[in-house]
């Protein structure tokens, strides 16, 4: 079983995710220089492989002469925090409501399902910007916005899957075993839904990273002086013709993080499903 749990998707996806997490965790130790330090002599310095690069600024410098590599490393922190915290909270809220709707049925189901319908009829990014504008900027409001918008993703899938599981005869068997409804929900239904929830969680974490980037791109995330990948893209956009690398590196990093998370989710899906597991 242990070998089956570790397929190549989990190894590659999980490896990259773990690496990014370590970079975020140890950012102050890893970053070669202070990410906020400006040096106007180094303005728009190119990365190391180009002519007139500076060996102390491996990935070049931005329009204020700040070290791109150090900023990238430090910006991994807000990205990781948003991915983990927003992803987990979204999962908990959406899964709880989805289980309730699917398993309790009746009025509870009608109420939750209506709410999902109304919720999803708003365009998500617009809603996020509106919410953050309302709650104020900062990492916590980015997280609140993501949770408030994306819980429907978990809720819908979990509700549908709970309904499907409730049809199965093993639920009847558990009921006629004299077990309580709550026990059946947690012991019988939840394990069958968990693999799906975990896959959704990795997807949600990648979405959270993108949303954080979008919000910091429009200046609604953390304060503008601490570095974020989205903020770096926004700054790099203004100098795209002179110094493409200022924008390309954070974009590439976001792409890698998102792809790695999706790969990990894919791998977990097969590893966690007892029927697909071989």
């Amino acid at each position: 079983m242990t070998t089956a749990l570790l397929n190549w998707r989990i190894l590659v996806g999980g490896g990259i995710v773990a690496l990014l997490a370590l970079i975020a965790l140890f950012a102050p130790l890893l970053a070669p220089v202070d990410p906020l330090e400006q040096d106007l002599f180094l303005e728009l310095l190119p990365p190391w492989w180009q002519a007139d690069a500076d060996p102390t600024r491996a990935l070049g410098a931005d329009s204020l002469g700040r070290d791109v590599l150090s900023r990238l490393i430090h910006a991994a922190r807000p990205a990781l925090i948003v991915a983990v915290v927003a992803g987990t909270l979204t999962m908990l809220l959406g899964t709880a409501l989805g289980l309730m709707a699917g398993y309790m049925g009746g009025v509870v189901d009608t109420l939750i399902s209506r709410m999902v319908d109304i919720w999803t009829s708003f365009p998500a990014v617009l809603l996020a910007i509106m919410l953050v504008a309302l709650i104020g900027t900062g990492l916590h409001s980015v997280i609140i916005a993501i949770v408030l918008i994306d819980w429907t993703r978990f809720c819908r899938v979990v509700r549908a899957e709970t309904l499907a599981q409730a049809e199965m005869e093993y639920i009847d068997a558990a009921v006629t075993g004299g077990l309580r409804r709550g026990a059946i929900l947690f012991r019988e239904v939840l394990p069958n839904i968990l693999p799906l929830v975990i896959v959704l969680l990795t997807l949600e974490m990648s979405i959270a990273i993108i949303v954080e980037a979008v919000l910091s791109f429009v200046g609604l995330s953390v304060s503008s002086d601490s570095p974020t990948w989205g903020g770096m893209i926004a700054e790099g956009r203004q100098v795209i013709h002179q110094a493409w690398w200022v924008m390309a590196f954070p974009m590439g990093l976001i792409l890698i993080a998102v792809l790695a998370l999706n790969l990990l989710g894919d791998g977990l899906k097969t590893a966690l499903d007892p029927v697909l597991r071989r």
Binding site: M168, E169, Y170, D172, A174, T176, G178, R187, E188, N192
Partner: peptide, 30 residues
């Protein structure tokens, strides 16, 4: 009484057992 004095044999052996739980866990519930 259910599962103690009155028990059921399900119709479909495929869905009558929970796919996510080991046989021992399901057999020892009651």
């Amino acid at each position: 009484l259910l599962g103690r004095e009155i028990a059921m044999i399900p119709q479909d052996p495929l869905t009558g057992l929970n796919p996510s739980r080991r046989i021992v866990a399901q057999m020892t519930d009651t």
